[in-house]
Nucleic acid binder design. Structure first.
Lengths: 196, 196
DNA sequence: ATCAGAACATACTAATTAGTATGTTTTATG
DNA sequence: CATAAAACATACTAATTAGTATGTTCTGAT
C-alpha cells in the first residue's frame, strides 16, 4: 500500500476502535491523532472535517466488515434457516471484535447520529437494508424449496430477526452476564424452527 | 408544589426533552439553563454535577414514565398474551411522546452511557429488569391458566420480546417510514400466537 | 421584624473542542 | 536533478464546555 493511503487507513482503523468503545461524539480529533501518532496537519489533509472521517469509517470499515460477517454467510447456503441461527450465534458469541459491553458498531452509530446527521443515517440505512435483503432472500429460497411454510412473510421475518438481534446487542451493554445471549438464542431457535 | 421543587422539576423535564432528541453527551448545561430560563447558580444549587442531573432524570422522569407505560398495563389483566401485544403496539404507534426518529429514551441512554458510566448503567438496568419481570409474570400466569404451552420458557420469551422491541425502536431511527413498525408488529403477533 | 439558611444570580476560569494558517518535507515525474 | 504537487508538521484561534467563586434575594421560623 502507498504510504499516504496507509496513513489514511491507519486513522480510520484506530478511530473506529476508539469510537466503537466510547462513541463518536466523545471521541476528539486530538485523541485520534494522539493514538495514531499522526499530526493534525496530516489528519486534515486526509479528511476535510470530523464528519467526513465518520462517513469514511462507515463506508470503508463498518460496511466491508459487516458484509463479511453478516451477509456473506447467507449466500448460497443449503439450509438457510439453520444458517441464520448459526450466523447470529457466531456474531454474539464468537466474533472477537464485537464485545457485549460495547454493543454493535453500526447500532451505536445509528443511535447517536440519527436523526440529526442525515449523511450518517443514509450510509447506515444502506447497511441495514443490505442485511435485511440478504435474510429475505434466504427465506424466499426456503419457501421455494418447500422447507418452510408458504404463508411465511420474508419481509416480516427479516425485520423481526434483525430487530431482535439489534435489541439484544443493546441490552447486553448493561447486562452483568451473557445469560441474556443464551436466553435470546434459545428463543430465536424455537422461533425459527416454528417457521417450518 | 414548593417553588424550589418546581424549579428542580422544570430542569429535569426540559433537560429530558432535549436529551431525548439529541443525546445526553451533546446537551450542554448552558443549553439547559437557556431553555429553562434558570441561571447557572440555580442549576448547580440543585445538582452538584451534570451526571447527578442525569441520574435524577432516569430515576425521576424515565423510571416513573416507563413504569406507567411499560409495566402498569401488564398488571392484573385477563389475557396477558393479547395485552403484551397491545402494549407494544401502543408504545410504537400511539404514545405521543415517543417519536420514531428519536428512539427509546432508555435505549438511547443505555447505548451512549454504557459501559463507561456505571451509575447510569445500574439505574438503567433496574428499569429493564422491572419490565422483563413484569412480562415473565404475565407469561407465568398464562402457563398456569393453561392458555399457553407448558413448555414455554417465560424468561426466554421475555428476553426475546424486549430485545425485538428495543431493536425495532433503534432501527426506526433510520427508517424512512413506519412500515418497519407494521412488519414487526405483524410478526410479533404471529410469534405470540404460536405460544398458544 | 429579624435573621439564618435556602434559593437563586452573575461573572468568571481552565480545559477541551474542531478547525485554520502557514509553514516544511517527501515523492513522483519529466 | 529540478520541480511541482502531494503529504505532513507546528502553532495558533475562537468557540464551547463543566464547573466555581462570590455575591444577592427570598422565605419561613422565632
Amino acid at each position: 500500500m502507498k504510504k499516504a493511503l496507509s496513513t489514511r487507513q491507519n486513522i480510520l482503523e484506530k478511530a473506529f476502535d476508539i469510537i466503537y468503545t466510547k462513541s463518536y461524539q466523545t471521541t476528539s480529533i486530538d485523541e485520534i491523532i494522539a493514538t495514531t501518532k499522526v499530526t493534525k496537519g496530516a489528519f486534515y489533509y486526509h479528511f476535510k472535517t470530523k464528519d467526513e472521517m465518520g462517513i469514511a469509517i462507515i463506508n470503508e470499515i463498518v460496511k466491508p466488515t459487516m458484509e463479511e460477517a453478516y451477509i456473506a454467510p447467507l449466500r448460497n447456503v443449503a439450509n438457510p434457516i439453520e444458517q441464520i441461527y448459526a450466523m447470529i450465534t457466531s456474531l454474539l458469541l464468537e466474533t472477537p471484535y464485537l464485545k457485549p459491553a460495547y454493543g454493535c458498531p453500526a447500532g451505536n452509530l445509528i443511535q447517536e447520529m440519527s436523526p440529526w446527521h442525515t449523511e450518517f443515517s443514509k450510509a447506515l440505512n444502506e447497511l441495514v437494508l443490505e442485511w435485511k435483503t440478504a435474510i429475505e432472500n434466504c427465506l424466499q429460497k426456503e419457501i421455494e424449496n418447500g422447507t418452510i411454510a408458504k404463508t411465511t412473510n420474508p419481509k416480516q421475518v427479516a425485520q423481526f430477526v434483525i430487530s431482535s438481534y439489534w435489541g439484544t446487542r443493546n441490552l447486553a451493554k448493561i447486562a452483568t452476564s451473557t445469560n441474556c445471549y443464551r436466553d435470546y438464542l434459545n428463543e430465536l431457535k424455537r422461533y425459527l424452527n416454528n417457521l417450518k
